[in-house]
């Protein structure tokens, strides 16, 4: 639609030659170090400011690992991770802490990412307090209002909420810090379609209103088509396709992208689908 007309934005994130490997504990010898499995094999990509970039791929493609490097929960073995002109790939935890306010994350499983022992308002307020951006109950209520949850949720515990409500709390926690970047890692994969739709339209509205840069990790191309401006297709730790969503969906370059698109079961009768 308008994708082609959008002038190129400066990149908020710029990644060059990103390599990352994990030790393969299943094949660890009796003595010595375990062999390493390469998960990301030299990725180079840009995330333009103010846009939503979808990162898609099958399990084992390295999409979640890439996401965790972006918010620096993981450090790269090699390569540059430049955020806003600064290489954050090798920074230690103390140097990262002031930057983390700008690098927020919404997790896949809101049950395990919200501390079961804390009330909702405290979960939202705590990071605000740490960064001296408020952190009172009133501030938490404001954030709750932005994600469409009434005041009465403030004093509940996470296990008293439904999946969709929990994910809203996760979004409220992330936006409360007014970050520049949000990583959303498979945030709707555990939800019913109806709650999915609600959470996704909420995320889209908030991202556009706040001018956020978002990396949206998903295995679901349908969702990416409607939510994202750009898309990156990963396969076994390599980028096989990328570009504005319209281009990639209508003219996929890689067979992987074509296979992924062809395997989506659309809610319509199509007798030739299996062929």
């Amino acid at each position: 639609m308008t994708d082609v007309m959008t002038p190129p934005q400066p990149a908020l994130f710029s990644i060059k030659g990103l390599h990352l490997s994990f030790p393969d504990r299943a094949h660890r010898p009796l003595f010595g170090a375990a062999p390493r499995i390469e998960v990301l094999k030299g990725l180079t990509l840009d995330l333009p400011e103010g846009r939503i970039t979808g990162i898609v791929g099958e399990s084992g493609s390295g999409k979640s690992t890439l996401g965790r490097v972006l918010v620096r929960l993981l450090a790269p073995d090699a390569g540059q991770v430049t955020f806003d002109g600064k290489d954050i790939g090798a920074l230690d935890e103390d140097a990262l802490r002031p930057l983390r306010r700008d690098l927020q994350m919404i997790f896949q499983d809101p049950m395990s990412s919200l501390n079961p022992r804390h009330k909702v308002w405290r979960i939202i307020a705590q990071p605000m307090k740490r960064y001296r951006r408020g952190g009172t109950r009133a501030d938490a209520l404001k954030a709750l209002e932005k994600v469409g949850l009434p005041e009465s949720f403030a004093d509940r515990y996470p296990h008293e909420l439904s999946g969709g409500q929990r994910q809203r709390v996760g979004i409220a926690r992330a936006i409360a810090l007014e970050p520049r970047f949000i990583l959303a890692d498979e945030i709707v994969s555990g939800l019913d379609v109806s709650s999915q739709a609600q959470v996704l339209s909420l995320l889209k509205t908030l991202a556009k209103d706040m001018g956020l840069t978002v990396a949206f990790i998903s295995h679901d191309l349908s969702v990416i088509r409607h939510l994202c401006d750009d898309v990156i297709v990963l396969n076994h730790g390599e980028i096989v396709d990328s570009g504005p969503v319209q281009t990639v969906f209508e003219h996929p370059k890689s067979d992987i992208t074509k296979a992924l698109l062809g395997a989506i079961p659309r809610p319509e009768i199509d007798d030739s689908w299996f062929e």
Partner: peptide
């Protein structure tokens, strides 16, 4: 291993704070 520990890091918590205010209650 739980995500809420990672999310405390994302939220700027120091390690000791994470241990005392996130893990200890659990």
């Amino acid at each position: 291993q739980m995500d809420y520990v990672d999310s405390a890091r994302i939220g700027g918590a120091r390690r000791m704070a994470t241990l005392l205010s996130e893990i200890l209650p659990n």
